[in-house]
């Protein structure tokens, strides 16, 4: 299978801009300016194959949105590369990036912030078409807009109205239409349904699944909700503190999770079943990405950690068709 998008050894750190006073420290008889960083992504390698719906899951602050934004070129990597169809794109000039800006579209979590409040729905949908396909005449643009509106179930009467007149679910529908209207190949969706109610979440998920089928789209789908992953994803990447713990086909990840963190995460899903399953309690809380733990970033909370875990960063290794970064799995201490 060919990968459409490749994330190669990606690192991203953000400088912390505290008060100047916070940044100055005194030691050895001298003042120093501390340079502190948030280490949001620490060596992520991930390929997105053509046609798949790859889900990235993890708890808040683990770096999911940073991955999404870096892939989209909204942030530049601190080191590493992003490739699209084998071509490096993270260092392109804005002009050279233009064709990719059409092929790659993003849907955001907040359907309130992602639409321009001063544009009617029709204007918001026409704008990207005019921008990316300047050769189309007005009638052709209108036709295109009408076609996409129909395909995502937007009533033509919505066209003259403004975003504030719509509910969260309706706005997310409009954002999806706006992403689809330029005929993209690849869609990054960053928590697209997290702000929506259950009955509306199902509508939006269905819409994204229909679009994938009809338009042969490839998705990088970011979420913290594992039951959505189980339903929507063809493959899953589990993240913790800026690193990948486990990458596996969805069915496999849910039936035989290998990484201790994946196991804990799966056990915490509130299920409808009668019997309350025992969830795996983790020690402590997620450390800050400012001072990353040494070795395996999960070692402070891991029930299987040993001395090696505190020193050596585990590599993603192939174990029965799953990729896992865990010494215990490698040493066969863990299933």
């Amino acid at each position: 299978m060919t990968s459409l998008v490749s994330i190669k050894n990606l690192y991203k750190k953000f400088p912390i801009h505290g008060d100047l006073l916070d940044q100055i420290s005194f030691s050895g008889g001298k003042f120093h300016l501390k340079h502190e960083y948030v280490h949001a992504i620490n060596g992520v390698n991930l390929d997105v194959d053509k046609g798949e719906a790859l889900c990235v899951v993890g708890e808040s602050g683990c770096g999911k949105s940073t991955v999404a934004r870096t892939v989209m070129g909204l942030l530049s990597p601190s080191s590493g590369e992003i490739q699209y169809n084998g071509q490096r794109i993270d260092n392109l000039s804005p002009t050279a990036m233009m064709p990719y800006r059409r092929k790659m579209q993003m849907i955001f979590q907040n359907p309130y912030a992602s639409l321009n409040p001063r544009m009617t729905i029709t204007q918001a949908l026409e704008e990207p078409v005019r921008w990316h396909q300047p050769k189309l005449n007005t009638a052709e643009v209108k036709e295109k807009v009408a076609e996409v509106m129909a395909s995502v179930g937007i009533d033509p009467s919505w066209g003259v109205r403004f975003p504030h007149e719509f509910s969260g679910g309706q706005r997310q529908r409009i954002s999806i239409a706006r992403a689809l209207i330029v005929d993209p190949e690849f869609i990054v969706a960053d928590e697209p349904i997290s702000a929506l109610d259950v009955s509306i979440q199902a509508q939006v998920l269905n819409l994204l699944m229909d679009a994938r089928e009809q338009r042969e789209l490839t998705y990088l789908f970011i979420t913290h909700d594992l039951s959505v992953v189980e339903h929507f994803g063809t493959r899953v990447a589990v993240m913790y503190l800026g690193a990948l713990c486990e990458v596996a086909p969805t069915r496999k990840l849910f039936s035989s999770p290998k990484h201790p963190y994946t196991q804990a995460l799966l056990s915490a899903i509130p299920r409808l079943e009668d019997e309350k399953p025992d969830f795996i309690r983790l020690k402590g809380e997620v450390p800050t990405p400012v001072n990353l733990p040494s070795g395996c970033v999960f070692h402070g909370r891991c029930p299987h950690a040993n001395e090696r875990c505190k020193q050596e960063i585990p590599k993603l290794l192939d174990v029965d068709g799953t990729r896992v970064a865990c010494h215990a799995v490698e040493e066969k201490r863990l299933g």
Binding site: V198, S199, Q201, A202, L205, V228, E230, H231, R271, L272
Partner: peptide, 12 residues
């Protein structure tokens, strides 16, 4: 409508 009630990969 819950994803955990659906058949994976099919419409909810």
């Amino acid at each position: 409508a819950l994803p955990q009630q659906g058949i994976p990969g099919e419409r909810l």
